[in-house]
Nucleic acid binder design. Structure first.
Length: 600
RNA sequence: GGUUCCAUAGCUCAACUGGAUAGAGCAACUGCCUUCUAAGCAGUAGGUUCGGGGUUCGAGUCCCUGUGGAAUCACCA
């Protein structure tokens, strides 16, 4: 109903089927009850009606029922050209005229597939890194996913606020700070030429190494392992630093600001390469005290309860979960407390948002179930609209990435490697004649990052995915470069058409080549695919669509000549047709945060 | 132990939410560049959808059960 397609085929067909039921079988069947599905490739037709569920109504065998319905539909509508029945499947073949009309409609819409009307205002959170470590492959999945989902929701007419919360405080950053003070000798990103986030991350690693040494020494001196882990000198120093930070001791606070500043400029560079942006940043250092008041007032209202030691809990056993702590016995907050506070803060900052979408790994599924339940219990009606966009880990062939074991794939390194590979491949193929250095470098970025983004986004986010750094990501087949290449080919056609002054010419045609029809059928699905992708928060649906479209167009490209076509109408149509395909590919890839090149 | 998620071709992933003969790509093999870009197109081969039951016209999809894997259940974040 919100689709931008002016001709709603489904609606027409459902009505036709429901009419057929009425007149052939004397049975009222509302259009809504009729389910249509796309016809499988190996059969003639585009829309299929499954008659099995209706045999009790028709009181005839499936084939006969299908025949009767099909005959009635063909006789009584002007959009269905013919039909065939295979077992209980009624396949409907629409007229070329209808497909041409549909194509003309979408060709006239500059933003085909996108919905202009503002629906809801939403917030999407993604990235949200810690400031003690550089970004890695897992963050890439998070960022690409969050950004793509934001784009897709915008395409559905929502106003989206992209935010992240930066975990800028806590023991982890203090560890880096301690190590830097001890071993840094005043090193700065400028002095050593190290990217800020990498530099801070290096000191985090240095801390960990020293910490382990101290533990071993303590064990060697006869202490229990557990005691050693809690009493290693360097850890005590970090904890002391955290206390000083909380008291805002100027020396510590300044150092904290300085080192975080390094990290932020490093992150900014990474986000820039990734091509993701944010509308508002939240910092944990500003929000970590929030939520406590909410808990206390919830306690007064009897939503929460206090244990003997003074700690505050929520009982979720009725919801199938456990009890969960909200305030420690000393009255301080836990992670959950902060998240409650931050969620409420955001709804105050953006009073019109309907829901928040949290792009966070699936290891926090339990956390978010609890969070949404608590917010609901506190009486926030928006809580039930909130959604945890959960995604699986990215595994390496060796198993899970572990920063302490050095088995992380660094985000910057990986992106650079992809761009380098793209450059190498492009040069091998001799594709950059006449490019300036800048154009060439842009192209490598578009291809390399496109390949990486597509590789990650084409997978259902819920599933774990495997990344093998040994095998480079493909540039052929179901990949971004394949789709980008299709776009670039069309761009070449359109340039030539312009040169020959035969672009944007009016045409009048009555039949379509089968390859053209297949493509138009796909194009027609675009609005529905976006709608589904938005509903499911699933960019992979868009990725699949872009691939299908490119694949189908390439078939047309191989089978049908454009500039050798002597019939002017067919020639002009094919140029317009190619332009719409290119435009749609660009839009679809844009929803994934992937650019397309005019030449490659 | 409780809860949740996952298991599909040698590998990486699909299967429009219960529909037809389970599809793509990579890797392997065969063809196609003097015509709009071969990062392409056409084709061959590759499957007991983890095992076992059940529900029904019809199951990779839903239910039960077993096996294998993952996450989570912290006064950690």
């Amino acid at each position: 109903m919100e689709t931008t397609a002016a001709i709603d085929i489904n609606q027409h067909l459902k009505k036709a089927i429901s009419n057929a039921f009425k007149e052939v079988f004397h049975h009222e069947l509302s259009g809504e009850e009729v389910a249509l599905q796309p016809t499988r490739k190996e059969f003639e037709g585009s829309h299929t009606f499954v008659v099995f569920p209706y045999l009790k109504i028709t009181r005839k065998p499936p084939e006969a029922s299908g025949e009767l319905l099909g005959t009635h539909i063909v006789d009584n509508t002007d959009i269905v050209q013919s039909f065939n029945v295979v077992k209980g499947f009624l396949n409907l073949e629409l007229t070329d005229k209808l497909w041409i009309d549909i194509f003309n409609q979408m060709a006239g819409q500059e933003n085909y597939g996108l919905i202009e009307a503002t629906q809801d205002e939403l917030m999407v959170e993604y990235s949200s890194p810690n400031t003690n470590k550089p970004l890695h492959l897992g963050h890439l999945r998070n960022n690409f996913l969050g950004y793509a989902v934001s784009k897709i929701l915008e395409a559905q007419g929502n106003k989206v606020h992209k935010v992240q919360i930066i975990n800028d405080r806590g023991i982890h950053i203090c560890k880096s700070m301690v190590a830097w003070l001890k071993y840094g000798q005043g090193e700065t990103p400028e002095s050593s030429g190290t990217k800020g986030d990498k530099l801070v991350g290096d000191y985090y690693v240095k801390f960990d190494r020293e910490y382990k040494l101290q533990i071993e020494e303590l064990i060697g001196a006869g202490h229990e392992k557990e005691w050693a882990e809690k009493n290693a000198q360097i850890l005590l120093e970090a904890q002391d630093m955290l206390r000083k930070w909380e008291q805002k001791e100027p020396e510590v606070y300044n150092l904290w600001e300085k080192m975080n500043g390094w990290v932020y400029s490093g992150f900014e560079a990474s986000y820039n390469t990734m091509g993701v942006t944010f509308d508002k940043l939240y910092y944990e250092s500003n929000t970590f005290l929030l939520g406590k008041d909410e808990i206390l007032s919830g306690l007064e209202k009897g939503i929460f309860f206090k244990k003997e030691d003074g700690s505050v809990w929520v009982d979720l056993t009725e919801d199938g979960l456990d009890q969960k702590i909200l305030l420690r016995s000393d009255g301080t907050s836990v992670y959950m407390t902060q998240d409650i506070g931050t969620a409420i803060l955001r709804f105050r900052d953006f009073p019109n948002i309907k829901s928040q979408i949290y792009t966070v790994g699936n290891e926090q599924e339990y956390h978010f179930r609890v969070l949404f339940l608590i917010l609901d219990k506190l009486g926030y009606t928006w809580a039930k609209n909130c959604y945890h966009l959960s995604y699986g880990m990215v595994d390496l062939p060796s198993g899970k990435m572990k920063s302490r074991e050095g088995t992380v794939v660094d985000a910057d390194d990986l992106m650079q490697q992809m761009v380098d590979t793209a450059a190498e491949r492009t040069r091998e193929l001799g594709k950059i004649d006449g490019f300036t250095d800048e154009q060439a470098s842009d192209l490598y970025n578009i291809i390399g990052l496109g390949a990486l983004k597509y590789f990650i986004l084409k997978v259902d986010p819920r599933k774990r995915m495997l990344f093998n750094p040994e095998e480079s990501i493909d540039f052929q087949g179901n990949t971004a470069p394949f789709i980008q290449y299709t776009y670039a080919r069309i761009a070449a056609i359109l340039r030539k058409a312009k040169q020959l002054s035969i672009a944007d010419q009016p045409y009048k045609i009555t039949t379509l080549h089968s390859a053209e029809k297949e493509v138009v059928m796909l194009l027609n699905e675009f609005p529905d695919r976006i709608k589904l992708a938005a509903k499911e928060y699933a960019p992979y649906i868009i990725a699949q669509f872009a691939y299908d479209l490119a694949k189908e167009y390439n078939r047309f490209y191989a089978e049908v000549s454009i500039f050798n076509e002597e019939n002017k109408n067919a020639l002009y149509f094919r140029i317009a047709f190619s332009a719409v395909v290119a435009r749609t590919i660009k839009t679809a890839m844009g929803l994934l945060g992937i650019e397309v090149p005019e030449r490659m």
